[in-house]
Amino acid sequence: MDKKIKVLFTIPNFKNAGSRYVLVSIIKKIDTTRFEVFIGVEKYPEHIPNIISKDRQILIPRTGKILKDISTFSKILKKHKIEIVHSWDYKSNFIKALACKRSSVAYLYTKKNDSWSKRWFVKSLLAKHIAYDNPEMKNKFFSGLLLRNKITFIPHGVDINTFKPKKLKEVATENFNICTVGNINKNKNQLFTVKTLIDLPDFVHLRLYGKPEPNYLKKLKEVIKKNNLEDRVHIKGVVPNDELPLILQNQDLFVLASKNEGLPVSVLEALACGVPVLCSDSGGGSRFIFKDKLGGKVFNLKNSEVFIKEVLKYVHDKEFYKTKTKEAVQLAHQFDICKEVTSYEKLYEKII
């Protein structure tokens, strides 16, 4: 048997880092006959999921002293004989990339957000390769001579065996349930959807799942109270990821009104559960998912009237709704997590 390639996945933590569930899904599906997986976090090691053995769970301490942190990480790489570091850090910090250069270890990072700076450019120069999940990032960030030959577009996927429809249902006969999933904050922009309820029928309800930012939550509650929406807006807070499929299966429409997104996995999860989606034009990821207008569509945040008309189509037109639920499942299958994992496995073998 050929020697396994040792891959260290790094992420700030598994307590509240945005990509933690995506990374868990990938690690669960990776071919363990070809790859030996390690997980490294900067804090909260007790939250590392038990999907790999304890001896491959690594705490990567940070002191803020550049040379010391490079040296510490280099020693970790040497101790475990790591061959590839795959970073899921959303920040532009390039300490780990420098340590990998020093240790002759291939450094790969996945670009997920729309941020860019000189530090991101340096991090990209140091990287052996870059994966990106938003098709528009290629021209936006990586078109230059120094970067364009070290990039691969790998869209996120969804575990269609976990996120799946209970049944292809028709529109609910009592309340029509709109759902959002994600941190409750200014960027996720739940306020947009709350305000549109004013012009929607009283039986249209909104459920908000996610960790609330205190100041934004206060503002949200003020708008809810001012417009007498207390009985129609239900703020549910954070739910365990393993409970999410059942929650989604019982919704009628999923709305993502974000101002900025990469390729939103929450949209794919809703689609896989047979829930049609209305998604704001928050970046190339949403346009990529709905390029054929199957299972939902992209809307403009500047035009709430058009959004309301779209919602009403789902509320009142049963045949239209039934078609969209079927399309949603079909579309989600195009983003099967296994495709994402296979793409990364091929990339690991290419850059080693």
Rank of each mutant, 00 (worst) to 15 (best):
I184M: 08
N175R: 13
T180K: 09
D159T: 03
N175K: 14
N183A: 15
E174S: 11
N177T: 12
L168Q: 02
K164H: 13
K169A: 07
K186F: 10
P165V: 02
V158T: 05
F176W: 03
K186W: 10
T180D: 09
K166G: 15
P165R: 00
N161S: 11
I160V: 14
N175D: 15
K167A: 12
E170V: 07
G182T: 06
N175T: 08
N177A: 06
I160P: 10
K188T: 03
N185T: 01
K164V: 04
N187F: 04
K188W: 02
V158N: 07
L168T: 07
G182S: 10
K164L: 10
A172K: 14
N187G: 05
K169Y: 03
K169C: 02
I160W: 01
I184R: 09
I160L: 02
F163H: 03
I184Q: 09
V158D: 05
P165F: 00
N177F: 05
I178A: 05
A172Y: 05
N183F: 11
N177Q: 12
V171N: 08
N183I: 06
N187C: 08
K188N: 10
I160G: 04
N183K: 12
K166H: 12
N187T: 10
N177K: 15
C179K: 01
I160C: 12
N161P: 11
K186I: 11
N187E: 12
F163M: 02
I184V: 15
N185E: 13
K169G: 04
C179Y: 01
F163A: 01
D159Y: 03
T162K: 15
F176I: 04
L168E: 04
K188Q: 03
K164S: 10
N187V: 09
N187W: 05
C179G: 13
E174M: 10
F176S: 01
A172R: 15
F176Y: 07
E174G: 00
V171W: 02
K164G: 02
E170S: 12
N177L: 12
N187Q: 12
N183Y: 09
T162A: 06
K167M: 07
N189H: 14
V171L: 07
I160H: 05
T173N: 12
F176E: 00
K169N: 08
T180A: 14
C179V: 15
I184Y: 06
N187Y: 03
G182A: 07
T173A: 07
F176D: 02
N175W: 06
E174K: 15
K167G: 10
P165N: 00
F176H: 02
E170A: 00
K188F: 03
K188G: 03
T162E: 14
K186M: 11
P165K: 01
I184L: 13
G182F: 03
N161A: 00
A172H: 13
C179D: 06
T180Q: 14
T162D: 09
V171E: 07
F163W: 00
V158I: 09
K164R: 14
K169M: 02
I160F: 01
T173G: 00
E170C: 00
N187K: 11
T180P: 10
K164Y: 09
T180Y: 07
T162N: 14
A172L: 09
N161W: 03
F176T: 01
K167D: 11
V181D: 03
N189G: 05
I184T: 08
G182K: 08
D159Q: 08
E174L: 13
G182V: 04
N175E: 13
D159V: 02
N185M: 09
N175G: 00
K169W: 02
K186H: 14
A172V: 00
K169P: 05
